[in-house]
Design a binder for these strands. Structure first.
Lengths: 336, 336
DNA sequence: ATGAAAGCGCTAACAT
DNA sequence: ATGTTAGCGCTTTCAT
């Protein structure tokens, strides 16, 4: 900036005024400064600018996802990016793979960089360590799952309601023995979806049988294996409810490999790509990652704009999409 | 930091030494400083630290993708993140949706933040504007497509070879009339894949007929529409080669909707999720986004470590995966 | 081994 | 309307 001032023959402060579009610079000097800026290909150092500025906003936010390459995470990411871009804010993204330590590390790195706010899909179960961020005014929004032991904004899917809806759909098609495949119960969404499953069964007067419930499943292979096991029972399920996109994929794969995809019903939580092209097409309770991301970003920026009202907990609706796999009736083996 | 120094009863510089693990601090003082740091929950401001530091490395890099939520982009992203994490580097990610202006904006924002390096899937076709980054020492690696009018490192897939391979596969199964669906020819990968298609046909003594070549397709619907049109020709193709993941999805969808998926062959460039579960399963020329991302990040960090050798252009191999749709022979309508 | 002073690139506060 | 000086939080340089 000093170079620009020298070339334009003005004081440093005048360049600063031009760069920040502050009033009180004559058109003539402004033109000279702009010419010097172009000539030197000058760009103001955003980090240095922030240092002295009151309020110290860096115009950056941090985003902690489960995995940037997971479809749910990356669509969320895109929605956050779009909202941030509208405000000239840049986003740091990171994956924590359900590792609480990694969550803390990432958030720590974000703090070191003095991000204005953080949107986090939490992996840990004690967010008291974040009280410091609250104190320093760093905005914080929890996404997909609420905070633990911390009163913070959150935006989540209607997990219980969606699972109830999905399982009721299977019940309505005559199923009474419905297997459940779920992720780590330490993940609140997994626990809530199981809760919805149980509630729907109870509502229909069906006993939830633990022998057809498999949790702590983390990937498609684990889900496929679980399905194999459950189908080998003396009294196997006639339908499955899978609590997560990867488990739905594994479940579909297992049914196909056993040639039973037209006989055993399946409804998955969270939509999967090409679900409509499979045979049968896969029925799902679809989440809305774009809406979640947008709502989270909007909430974050509202806080950054000074909103200090009590924590807001938004629940984004989910949608049952009936495509075929969830409409198979029990004993449809010969119906082909 | 001043607060920490005051609490520990030492000079500012001593705290700085402890924080940076510099030698020459007595164990006793170090302990006192660490206690103060914990007590105050202190974190060194990374931006301020960088300001005065020689070399001025911010330990951040920028990543320009086509779209963070696209599967190819997001897997690339993850590979870059993992490599960056190993070095304690944070990554800014952004989508430019094939918009050259957006590419410049994003890279400009990254420059403002003084990122150490940039990995970019280029949307523009003139990168002379980046000469400034070269001068200031910002490392630059082009991914998926090479730089234009700029001598810079690149990591790309074997587009021509992969397309040749895929089309030869269709030729080997008896096809002579093969439709081509491609993206904007201004995107080098799209142009190269078309080149591979043409070359394979020529190698087999088959004339490339422009009437079965459709380009400038940007999404699944456009691809589906193109397939409808081509199938309505008096002399329709018996097979299709789709030059991109979204076009493959659209192509598959169109064939299914017309009930001709067991009759018309299809090979796609770039793998798609659940391709193996479709009926027939979709044969593809698979790219390796993880390998591309890792290679790009490694190259970037090599440059940051001082490597000033001439620009390196890496070509990552692709793999033909035969799953069924590419092995359908012409006139298989009644073969069911 | 420890510390005081200068300065990184910029903005804030206060001149003129 | 323009410039001068201090200072953001830290590292560097140079004492002691």
């Amino acid at each position: 900036m000093l170079d620009v001032a020298a070339l334009a023959g003005v004081a440093l402060k005048t360049v600063s005024r031009v760069v920040n579009s502050e009033p009180g610079v004559s058109p003539e000097l402004e033109a000279r400064v702009r010419r010097a800026i172009d000539q030197l290909n000058y760009r103001r150092d955003a980090n240095a600018a922030t240092l002295r500025r009151l309020g110290r906003k860096t115009q950056t936010i941090g985003l902690v996802l489960e995995d940037v390459s997971n479809p749910f995470s990356s669509e969320l990411h895109r929605a956050v990016e779009d909202a941030a871009r509208e405000r000239g804010v840049l986003v740091f993204a990171g994956s924590c793979d359900e590792d609480p330590d990694r969550e803390r590390e990432l958030i720590g790195s974000f703090r070191d960089r003095r991000v204005d706010g953080i949107i986090v899909v939490p992996a840990s179960h004690d967010h008291t360590y974040l009280h410091e961020e609250r104190r320093t005014g760093t905005a914080l929004v929890f996404v997909d799952r609420p905070a633990s032991h911390l009163d913070a904004d959150s935006v989540v899917s209607d997990n219980v309601g969606g699972a109830v809806h999905g399982v009721e759909h299977l019940l309505a098609h005559g199923h009474r023995r419905i297997g459940f495949l779920g992720d780590l119960l330490s993940i609140s969404t997994a626990e809530e979806r199981l809760r919805g499953y149980t509630r729907a069964l109870e509502g229909a007067g069906v006993r939830a049988d633990e022998s057809v419930i498999r949790t702590e499943l983390r990937d498609p292979d684990a889900a496929a294996w679980a399905i194999e096991e459950l189908l080998a029972l003396r009294d196997p399920p006639t339908a499955f409810f899978t609590g997560q996109n990867l488990l739905t994929i594994g479940g579909v794969r297992a049914l196909h490999e056993n040639g039973r995809e037209r006989e055993i019903a399946l409804v998955g939580f969270d939509d999967i790509s090409l679900a409509d092209m499979l045979t049968p097409a896969v029925s799902v309770v679809a989440q809305n990652p774009q809406a979640i991301g947008r709502a989270a970003a909007d909430q974050l920026f509202r806080r950054l704009d000074g909103d200090t009202s009590p924590a807001v907990h938004q629940i984004i609706p989910v949608t049952l999409i009936a495509r075929g796999s969830g409409e198979i009736r029990p004993g449809s083996a010969e119906a082909r």
